[in-house]
């Protein structure tokens, strides 16, 4: 290669990893945030489902007053 052109393009090979690294790391940071949001969403959704189920069960129980509550009943 022409030595002048070699000097003109001398920063390309040394700079490319930094350019790719900067773009990749920006997305790593953003993805970490997304993963944190997804984990929290999954946990919150699980809590919502569990609470709804508990409320439904409780309502069913209170709507049938003759039923003997199972909570705290010892196994004979």
């Amino acid at each position: 290669m022409d030595p002048v052109l070699e000097e003109v393009y001398s920063t390309v090979l040394s700079g490319a990893p930094y350019v790719i690294g900067a773009y990749a790391l920006i997305w790593v940071v953003l993805m970490v945030f997304v993963i944190m949001m997804l984990n929290r969403s999954r946990k919150t959704q699980k809590d919502i489902d569990a609470l709804r189920e508990s409320i439904e069960r409780r309502k069913e129980r209170t709507s049938r007053p003759d039923d003997v509550p199972t909570e705290g009943r010892s196994e004979d």
Binding site: V8, G15, V19
Partner: peptide, 23 residues
């Protein structure tokens, strides 16, 4: 020194790392 690239006289090094600017 200078080089002619695509009909343009270039007398400086071209900075590839400047492309980080775009993001």
């Amino acid at each position: 020194q200078a080089a002619i690239i695509n009909g343009t006289v270039v007398s400086t090094r071209l900075l590839f790392s400047q492309k980080i600017f775009y993001f």
